[in-house]
Each structure stands twice: as C-alpha cells, then as structure tokens.
C-alpha cells in the first residue's frame, strides 16, 4: 500500500485541481473531455462525507460558466465549491482601490464587470490565450512602465497546460515576460500562493494537516500545497510528464495513475 495513504485516516477535506485532473480542456467545441473515472470519483468523494473544494487556476471563463461546463461533462459541482483566481483578484482590487488594465481571456472579462477600469494603475494578467498578442502585451507594458510603482497581478503562474490538441503556454510565461520587461515582481493570485490555498481551507473549516491536495502540476499544485503544510498527490494525467517525478525541488507525498485511483485508495483507508 502507498505510504501516503496511511495518513489518510485523519483526512477531513480534499482540494482538487480541475484541468488535467477532472478533464482535459480544448477540443473543437471547447468543452474538453472528462478524464476516465473522474466523474465517478467526485461523486464518491461527496458520498464519503469528506469536504471538497475545487481549487483551480482556470481563467479562461467566469466561475459561473466554468461550473456549467463541468456540469455538462457530468461532474457534480456547484459554484460555491470552486475557488478561482478572478473572484479573489476582484476582492484585492476593491480592498486596495486599484483600477486594472485587464489582459485576460474574453470569456473571463465579465468577472470584472463591477470593477472600475478607467485610467488604470495596475495590470491584471490571466491566461488570455489568443489575446496574448504583441499589441496587448505592449499595452500592459506601457501601463506598468508609466507607473511610479508598477503593480502586476498574475492569476496563477503556470508554465503550460495540456489541451486536446497539444501543450499550450500558460499565464506564468507572460508574467515572467512583463516582470523582466519592467524589472518588477508580480503578485500571484491563485496557486501556488499561500493565501489562495489557505482561503480554500478556511472555506471548508479544515486545518492544513487534515487536508490533501490532488493535482497534475508538480510545482503549483503539489509544491504550493506543501508550503502550507497540506499533503499533496500528483496524478499522471493532464500536463504530467514522467520527469515530474524526478523534480529537483518538489517531491509529492504520492504519485497516482489518476484521480480515480487516488479516491479508491483514500476511501479504502477511511472505511477501515
């Protein structure tokens, strides 16, 4: 039996990454496809009585649309169970009285409808996909370089992710580009930021040692959770590549074929 599973008996809450764990995004209709066994796995977690939050860096859709898509793929998930960077960023902007220049996916923009975007004094960068044009990045750069203290928020800092037609560059690449251009450091909203994981735990009223994170990103999911004292498993689906198991800095608490296998092992332990 996997050694990580021994600790599973004190488990009260699960954090699941979504893209690459529940489903692979992309495809002709943009719906993507569920990863085998994941729909049932989510249902079984809920039946077990474990608390559950979906901890995503998804920024290509509003939370509402994102949840709809997951429901269409057959997942039992509601909006209040999803912790996503854009709503968290909106809160920060309002608290600090900041007006963003947005470089985000068209489908995410409605999330910022209520935010004042005139005369911007910061930049919010999301996974903008086709909107990552030279012109748009240059506008973001010009806003930042024109500020006395440039403030750049990045919704996650992933390197790349997998879509049905191949690997795609993620927001972190463009965050690094703007950091380098302006000689600044971005504030990351989303995984792997500590505040983001802790807000998900607070939402479940669960302590770090009572929680487990399951994701396909060795640095942002596994490394991020572990920094908060949360155990973390790496699935061999989504963007997973075999070299991730030999990562120089991050070692997962366990490696599993997919979410279904992780849930099989966990539930067996919890029922003992």
């Amino acid at each position: 039996m996997a050694t990580w599973a021994v600790g599973a008996r004190g488990l009260r809450g699960l954090l699941l990454d979504v893209s690459g764990v529940l489903y692979d995004s992309g495809g002709e209709e943009g719906l993507g496809s569920a990863i085998a066994g994941s729909v049932q796995a989510v249902r079984r977690i809920k039946q077990s009585g474990l608390k559950l939050r979906f901890c995503t860096n998804e920024t290509q859709a509003t939370r509402a649309k994102f949840v709809q898509k997951l429901q269409q793929l057959g997942f039992d998930v509601s909006e209040k169970e999803v912790i996503a960077p854009a709503p968290a960023a909106c809160r920060i902007l309002q608290e600090r009285g900041l007006r963003p220049y947005l470089l985000v996916h068209d489908a995410l923009a409605p999330e910022f409808d209520s935010v004042d975007k005139s005369n911007p004094n910061c930049v919010v960068l999301g996974d903008a996909a086709n909107n990552f044009s030279y012109e748009n990045l240059n506008k973001a750069f010009q806003v930042l370089i024109g500020l006395e203290t440039p403030i750049l928020f990045s919704l996650g800092k992933g390197r790349y992710y997998k879509e049905t037609d191949g690997l795609k560059l993620d927001v972190g690449v463009y965050m690094k580009a703007l950091e380098y251009a302006c000689d600044i450091e971005a504030e990351v909203v989303g995984k792997p930021s500590k505040a983001f994981f802790l807000s998900a735990l607070a939402d479940m009223d669960v302590e770090p040692h009572e929680a487990l994170m399951i994701g396909d990103d060795i640095v942002n999911d596994v490394g991020g959770a572990q920094q908060c004292g949360i155990g973390a498993l790496l699935v061999r689906t989504g963007k997973f590549r075999p070299c991730d198991e030999q990562h120089p800095e991050v070692k997962a608490d366990g490696y599993v074929t997919n979410l279904a296998e992780a849930v099989d092992i966990l539930l067996e332990q919890l029922q003992r």
Binding site: N138, F141, V173
Partner: peptide
C-alpha cells in the same frame, strides 16, 4: 527589455525569450 518607438517604449525580444526560458 524594451526599445523606443515614436509612440513610446515598446517590448523588445528579451521578455519573450525570458518567458520561453521559464516555460
């Protein structure tokens, strides 16, 4: 990092190279 155009500063190749290095 950037260069000067008539309409102001514009991104040079460095940021894009840095992004690909990170990826």
């Amino acid at each position: 990092r950037y260069y000067k155009r008539k309409d102001g500063l514009a991104l040079g190749p460095g940021p894009f190279v840095t992004g690909l290095e990170y990826a």
